[in-house]
């Protein structure tokens, strides 16, 4: 039984059914991964918004704090998308963002010598997360897409005595 369900029992009468044993969830692996990536995106976005100056210094990008902050806003928006009922759009937006991050970091790598180690580490991290985003998007699309050909229900009128006469 989950902690939340136990806490919610306080809103129920004493003799109402209580969970004794929990079964398998309707949430599948890709859904859970999308949620994890959604929260990661929001956390990263907040860090980029609030710590733009420090990040700029760490990557040798002084003067581009505005860019880091705008990326923070983008991360939060993508995170909200990934936590929504159609997470594939949020993950797709993250994949686009990953591309922008990689380009920005590569540009920084060309410009700086002092912080090259930091930039290379960040490039590695973004590349790893990008792969995870791509995998998640592919799995989500495959899990939630409509499959097979639509059935024809034209034999189901629901009128055993025949259709009412229209015009």
């Amino acid at each position: 039984m989950t902690i939340l369900a136990r806490a919610a029992d306080r809103a129920r009468s004493a003799r109402e059914p209580r969970i004794l044993e929990t079964g398998r969830s309707s949430l599948r692996g890709p859904d859970r991964l999308a949620r994890g990536l959604g929260w990661f995106s929001i956390a990263l976005g907040v860090i980029e918004l609030l710590g733009a100056r420090r990040l700029a210094r760490a990557f040798g990008m002084q003067g581009a704090e505005w860019l880091i902050r705008s990326y923070g806003v983008r991360e939060i928006a993508s995170g909200l998308g990934a936590l929504s009922i159609n997470p594939a759009s949020g993950i797709a937006s993250r994949i686009g963002g990953d591309g922008l991050d990689l380009l920005t970091l590569m540009a920084a790598n060309c410009r700086t010598r002092k912080q090259r180690d930091n930039v290379e580490l960040a490039l590695l991290a973004v590349a790893g997360v990008s792969l995870l985003d791509l995998y998640c998007h592919q799995e989500l699309s495959s899990l939630h897409q409509r499959r097979g050909t639509a059935r024809d229900y034209r034999d189901r009128s629901g009128f055993p005595n025949g259709k009412p006469k229209l015009e």
């Binding site: 939340l4 369900a5 003799r15 059914p17 209580r18 969970i19 004794l20 398998r24 969830s25 309707s26």
Partner: peptide, 24 residues
């Protein structure tokens, strides 16, 4: 008894729960 229980957004599970009782 078995029942379909809401655990959160898009999270429904078939749980084993205690049986209901007459309350009124």
């Amino acid at each position: 008894m078995k029942a379909l229980v809401w655990h959160g957004k898009q999270d429904i599970r078939c749980d084993r729960v205690s049986d209901p009782e007459i309350e009124d």
